[in-house]
Design a protein around this nucleic acid. Sequence first.
DNA 1: TTCCAATATATCACGCCGTGATATAAATTC
DNA 2: GAATTTATATCACGGCGTGATATATTGGAA
Lengths: 142, 142
Amino acid sequence: MPHTAPAGAPASVLRDLAQFRYRLRLFLRFSERAARAAGVTPLQHQLMLGVAGFTGRGWATIGELTECLQERHNAVVALVTRAVSAGLVRKRRDPADRRVVRVELTARGRRVLLRLAHRHREELARFPRGGLLPSAGRRGAR
Amino acid sequence: MPHTAPAGAPASVLRDLAQFRYRLRLFLRFSERAARAAGVTPLQHQLMLGVAGFTGRGWATIGELTECLQERHNAVVALVTRAVSAGLVRKRRDPADRRVVRVELTARGRRVLLRLAHRHREELARFPRGGLLPSAGRRGAR
DNA sequence: TTCCAATATATCACGCCGTGATATAAATTC
DNA sequence: GAATTTATATCACGGCGTGATATATTGGAA
């Protein structure tokens, strides 16, 4: 009778990883639905969250949003442009360094974001301790 | 002197959520880069992981992949079609119920997936206990 | 057997959005 | 004050998700 999990036991590893990604997808799906139900796209939600919460100042530059969202400049620029059209955020030139643009929430953007934040806190509170990680990430990953 | 966090303290909540999504994006970026470095698209990686690990049988139907990936039928069909063209998976009709299609890995698909699984286990092992969740998800969310 | 509903997969037009290449403008360096 | 760096913007292209719709197979009802 061999050990419980011999040297290369790929099956259970793949199963753990697949379940982990499945849980991730379920959460992201929840988030997408919540955003659309609030009348914004999932990306606009992420953008607003980055604008309001990433720096701790209540506003963010395009460059900071690039880091926050892990996207490229042009993707962020296009996203901000669309969010401005949707009335969720506005752009303002930084008076000190006129190259940079400050992105901040509009009143409507703030309302939408706060409601979404509330729903997300509820959903995240449902996860058990260490919920999102696969067992491989918590136990003897060796 | 008031409490540490009065009734509606949106700033720190938004900060927690933004940091949580930032960590998520960092992990997903790592995963995307790993997939591309292995010569496949991020979605092809997710597909292969679902095929090999979601059901525990080593193969999956389109419908099961729809649940696993949380996408719609047509998106999965198109994804599988592209993955077949890339030589990562193959389709086989189920002899019992000829409506369903079994998707399984090719030898090359298995090699690529196992390498990616290894890298992901390494990366996930770096997370502290409960790493991906915001403090709101672990502590008194009340 | 034949008809009908349910199930599983496939196809197509459309549009969002990420990407690479490239541009403009302001600040910094020499 | 010309060159370099930094910050943002524009555009063509392509991947891929979506809604509407089609096809095939199965199971059940008449």
